[in-house]
Structure formats: C-alpha cells, structure tokens
Simulated assay, not measured.
Amino acid sequence: MTTALLADDEPHLLAYLEEQLATAWPALKIVGRAPNGVEALRLIDELGPDVVFLDIQMPGLNGLQLASRLSAGGKAGKTAPQVVFTTAHEQYALQAFDSEAFDYLLKPIRLERLQRTVARLKESLAAPAAAPSPSPEAAAQLAAMLRQLGVPVPAAPAAAPAASAAPLQWIRAAQGQETRLIAVDEVIYFQSNDKYTSVFTPDAEHLIRTPLRQLREQLDEQKFWQIHRGVIVAARHVAGTRTDFRGRLLVKLKGRPEELVVSRNFADLFRQM
C-alpha cells in the first residue's frame, strides 16, 4: 500500500487536499499530517511515507528547505519519498525543480491536474528502484526551463560521451497577463503561431516563445508526433482519424473538439489506424 504525508500550515487547505486525494487516489493511505516543516520532517523520519505533499510557505522550516534535507539523505537504507509541492505562488517553481521535486501543484488544486500527478506517481513508484546517483534528468529539465525564460545556462565541462538529455517535462507559458507552469503530460498539441508556439491543453491555449522546431528536439518522439510542418500532437491524446470530402487526413483528439490536418509527409504514422 502506498503511503503519504501531508504538510500545510492552513488546516482548511490541508483538509481540502486530503478530500481531493480521496477522490483521485482512494487506495492511498494518509499516515500523517503536519502543520509546519519541523513536524513534517519528524513524521517523515518516523513514518517513512512513499510520497509527501508539501506546502512551500510554512513556519519553522519551509517546503524547499525540507525537500533539500530529504534529498540529502535520511536514515541509512531508507529511500527518500517523492516530493510534490503545493503552493499558491509560481515564483518558487525553479527552486522546486532544483530540489528535484516530482511535481509542483498550484493552489487551488484542480482534481484533473491532481489525477495526472497521481497517475505519474503510481507509474514511478511501480518502477524498479535505481541505484543511488545524481539526477541528470532534473538538471536537464531545469536547464530547459531556464533557456525558455531567456536565462543563459553555463556549458557543462567536457566529459565522455553520455546519453542524450532527458525529454522536456515542464513548460512555462503565458496566459493573458499571467504565467503558468504546465506539465508536458497535460499538452494535447503544439502549433506554430507566428513568432510564438501555441500550447493547447484540455482547458486553454497558452503561448511560448520557443519555436516549434526547437521544441521538437526537446520532446520525447515516442510520445509526441509531428503531423504537419506546424503541428506536433501528443500520441496519447489521438482519438482516431478520418478523411474529409477533400481527401485530407484529419486527426480527432481526446479532450479538444478541433481536428488537425495531417500533411502527406506524415500520413504514414496513421496507416494502421
């Protein structure tokens, strides 16, 4: 049975998160609740939960400080829990991923978003444990986010050839006057849009400055298919295809009403559908 600990200094938000988790993950056992970071650290050491949901702004020891202590190591032989941050403030996102957080949920936490996190947590926890080592994936994700924000990233020291960088996991996108951090798993498709790239999720369209060509190099090609010079679609959100009266191949989507045109150069992707 998977166990979790919840930490938040606002009781009503703690209760709300527990209610959402009861819906999104009924089998999850909540083994502890903490009103501050110091108590959370004590309970994590005592109870050894698989997952901790941490508010970032807490008295005594904030969520980022607590996560840093967890990643530094706890009891011998004890695997550090997966950390999911919960906060109302986006400005902590980069620090959160520098702490190798599993996910970053903005309050108020939407059930659909939490369900996606739960699905990824289940997959991660079910995977065989890897030998302890630094996380190049986290460094690659952080570097990609910094480049997207226009922040220079120092080149890594010369070393022996290594595996290619981990696929992009997070996107920082504009939505009106606000900026939103989007998990790549939320994206249904990307589309070139003049000097920008439109990012379509089930409930909105967002804009990023990264060109589609550059974005393609950062995406997992097994999960994201280019179907047109200006369109990349998430394979898991493809519901099917059809041919219109003009003979064009169209992709039907899960979660959005529009249909996307497939150019002839990419039609082979759908021969078996």
Rank of each mutant, 00 (worst) to 15 (best):
185 D>T: 12
269 L>K: 14
150 G>D: 06
74 G>Y: 03
68 S>R: 14
7 A>I: 04
68 S>W: 06
164 S>K: 15
145 M>P: 02
267 A>K: 15
158 A>L: 12
93 A>V: 13
71 S>Y: 04
14 L>T: 06
139 A>Q: 12
210 T>G: 00
233 V>I: 14
257 P>E: 13
189 Y>E: 02
155 A>F: 05
177 Q>G: 11
251 V>L: 15
131 A>V: 11
175 Q>L: 11
154 P>V: 05
195 K>N: 13
48 G>Y: 01
69 R>N: 12
135 S>D: 15
98 D>R: 13
150 G>N: 04
52 V>T: 15
3 T>A: 09
53 F>N: 02
31 V>H: 00
228 H>D: 07
127 A>T: 11
37 G>D: 01
182 I>W: 02
190 F>Q: 09
90 E>A: 10
231 V>S: 01
173 A>Q: 03
120 R>H: 03
102 F>K: 07
111 L>Q: 13
97 F>D: 01
176 G>K: 10
201 T>W: 08
49 P>W: 04
147 R>T: 09
195 K>D: 11
59 P>D: 13
240 G>W: 07
146 L>T: 07
216 R>L: 09
57 Q>N: 12
76 A>Q: 12
96 A>E: 06
200 F>Y: 11
205 E>R: 14
76 A>Y: 10
92 Y>V: 00
148 Q>V: 01
259 E>K: 01
103 D>A: 10
37 G>Y: 04
146 L>P: 03
20 Q>S: 14
255 G>C: 10
116 R>E: 14
190 F>C: 00
229 R>S: 08
199 V>S: 03
178 E>F: 10
106 L>T: 04
230 G>N: 11
225 W>N: 03
161 P>K: 07
138 A>D: 05
237 H>N: 12
186 E>D: 15
192 S>V: 09
85 F>A: 05
23 T>N: 11
252 K>L: 10
120 R>Y: 01
115 Q>F: 07
224 F>V: 05
101 A>S: 10
100 E>Q: 14
89 H>P: 02
81 P>Q: 07
202 P>E: 11
27 A>N: 13
17 L>D: 01
121 L>H: 07
79 T>Q: 14
84 V>Y: 05
21 L>E: 04
114 L>W: 04
76 A>G: 04
26 P>D: 10
42 R>K: 12
55 D>E: 09
214 Q>K: 13
30 I>V: 15
159 A>D: 07
245 F>D: 13
215 L>I: 09
234 A>N: 12
234 A>K: 00
242 R>W: 10
12 H>N: 10
218 Q>W: 09
268 D>R: 14
154 P>T: 10
192 S>I: 08
260 L>I: 15
65 Q>I: 02
111 L>V: 13
37 G>Q: 04
129 A>R: 15
144 A>T: 08
26 P>S: 03
235 A>K: 14
242 R>C: 05
68 S>L: 06
40 A>K: 07
248 R>T: 05
32 G>M: 07
213 R>S: 13
83 V>R: 08
55 D>V: 02
75 K>Y: 06
19 E>V: 10
97 F>C: 03
132 P>M: 00
268 D>C: 05
46 E>P: 00
193 N>V: 00
25 W>Y: 08
159 A>Q: 14
231 V>L: 01
146 L>I: 09
237 H>Q: 08
10 E>L: 09
118 V>H: 01
248 R>H: 13
